[in-house]
Amino acid sequence: MSILQVKGLSKHYPIQAGFLRREIGRVRAADDVNFSIARGETLALVGESGCGKTTVARCILRAQQPTAGSILFSPEEGQSIDLAPLSRRALRPLRRHIQLIFQDPYASLNPRMMVGDIIAEPLLIAGVPLKERQARVLELLDLVGLPMAARTRFPHAFSGGQRQRIGIARALALQPKLIVADEPVSALDVSVQAQIINLLLDLQDRLGLSMLFVAHDLGVVRHVSDRVAVMYVGRIVEVAPTTALYATPKHPYTQALLAAVPKADPALRDAIFAPAGEVADPAKPPPGCAFHPRCPFVIDRCRVERPELTELPSGHLSACHRARELTLTGVP
């Protein structure tokens, strides 16, 4: 049984106008999102800004209240709790099982607390006694590759990469079952980014963590994830195991994304292919398939009928009417 199962998750923001705040429309930040994460698996949620990947992550963490859908979380085998309807208070004891790694290593640490206190805070909240807390903080610092002396220092003394390690140590303090990483390396320098990616991979191997990895960088995602879900304008358009998704994408948008990445190889010069047009506005997505105005393979059906996410013989899930007939190119 998977550790997390998201069913029909939607988050709509009303657009209000006038003195009486009448609702005149809705931003469908996330619309009928379905996926699951197996134990020990990393699922990457990728897409461009505004596609709803962060909204989905925040709904799972219940930093936001989803408009509809269920979030079935299973901390233990055979146990299943729907997080979506729970109140703040009811969520509190469950929080220790799902932890968040932030994008911005500067904003996510309280500048007024010493690193030792930051890492110990989850333990303190969980009621771990002082002696144990201190021992565990040292253990965690070692786990993320920081020296013991870091304990008595303030976050401002650390570089971006080191701060991200502190954030990871805090997230791991209560031995969570699921980690939600929201663009954890996108604010870091290339050389530091590599260190953090390796750290996350090592930690996952050692601790058997499950992870939802939200990112926009397809290169990073390739290294980190087991499966990838691609989002476009609030909806998932394709889900597949990483290797299969990169080699043989089954949705024209996935193909476009892969083609747009500048390859770090001058021999593949001029291999950037930019799709025409712009990302659709989630407040007024095009009818039918949201990608149809930019899609080179568009047919009349795409303009009127919204494709559902369906399983293909290859094991891919794709929301494209022509997924079976098209031969799309990925990364060789």
Binding site: A63, R95, R96, Q99, E121
Partner: peptide
């Protein structure tokens, strides 16, 4: 973020 982080820790 750090206030959200505290909330996520169950504070």
């Amino acid at each position: 973020d750090f206030v959200i982080a505290a909330e996520m820790l169950g504070a």
